[in-house]
């Protein structure tokens, strides 16, 4: 890790993560603050009239009568995913393949620092952003739960578990986006491959949830690992899953570093 490079990355690429962090803090705080009003309106009656598959797809089968269930349905099923997909894929792309494609990586490599140190710095920066956004989300909920509503309604343990598994799932997405970013010298190619794979994962997950018959599709998507409704139920073994996800992302990051160390850089 190179301190000077890390600080420069924060300065030049930190805006995206700052806005996303602040944005999700506000959204989260607003959802928690709004929950008591919504809970009083018997939303569950309305939901019961909807088809089962649809409810499952949007993690609504638990109903909206708990704050956790509400957040899972309203935030973690879509906004959260889109937000972090955009962050993970874009950042990985900006940190490596863009610099290689445009040639400015030359100035970094032409200093007495090994490629390994340069690439590790970039990896740490991408994870910093992911953790920063996740912490903003958690803080948004905690602050709102503690001060904006009368009685605290958040089931803390489960809520934190959702965020930890979510963060680790996206660490894997960051890692494979990084891998493609290291593999391809063409910025657009790297971006389109990691974006397409992630979107395919997302679609497989949604389709698999909507239809019982297509449930098997979910075995082929990374988002199978992140099932906020089930974590909320307590039916997910959080520890082994966390270890698995962390292991996968470490493996992919190490692989990217090896590729970057050995490749020819046309810069």
């Amino acid at each position: 890790m190179i301190g000077a490079l890390y600080r420069t990355m924060i300065k030049t690429n930190g805006k995206l993560m700052l806005y996303m962090g602040l944005g999700s803090f506000v959204i989260m705080a607003a959802y928690v603050a709004l929950f008591p009003t919504i809970a009083n309106q018997n939303m569950d009656q309305l939901l019961k009239s909807m088809p089962e598959g649809l409810l499952k797809a949007f993690n609504l089968s638990d109903g909206l009568n708990t704050l956790n269930g509400f957040l899972v349905a309203e935030f973690y099923s879509m906004i959260y995913l889109i937000l972090l997909i955009v962050y993970s894929v874009l950042t990985a792309n900006h940190l490596v393949s863009r610099l290689v494609d445009r040639g400015s990586m030359a100035y970094l490599i032409a200093t007495p620092n090994s490629r390994l140190r340069v690439i590790t710095t970039q990896m740490l920066f991408s994870l910093t952003g992911l953790v920063f956004i996740s912490v903003c989300i958690v803080l948004g909920a905690l602050v709102s739960d503690a001060w904006l509503i009368d009685t605290s309604m958040l089931e803390m343990d489960r809520f934190l578990q959702i965020n930890v598994i979510g963060c680790l799932t996206f660490a894997v997405i960051c890692a494979y986006s990084f891998l493609f970013s290291c593999l391809f010298n063409d910025e657009r190619r790297a971006l389109s491959i990691s974006a397409s794979i992630t979107i395919i994962f997302l679609i497989l997950d949604i389709v698999g949830k909507v239809s019982e018959d297509l449930d098997w599709l979910r075995n082929f998507t990374l988002f199978h690992a992140f099932d906020p409704a089930k974590i909320s139920d307590g039916t997910v073994k959080v520890l082994p899953l966390s270890i698995g996800l962390a292991g996968a992302s470490i493996f992919l990051f190490v692989l990217s570093a090896i590729i970057f160390k050995r490749k020819d850089l046309p810069i």
Partner: peptide, 27 residues
């Protein structure tokens, strides 16, 4: 070694002095 690339592709989103400082620090 001091190296001047053939294609000038400086990092964007910063000013000249920031880049010079970065490379100074990295050296």
């Amino acid at each position: 070694v001091g190296y001047l690339p053939g294609e000038i592709a400086l990092m964007e989103n910063m000013n000249g002095l920031d880049l010079i400082r970065l490379i100074c620090d990295m050296r």
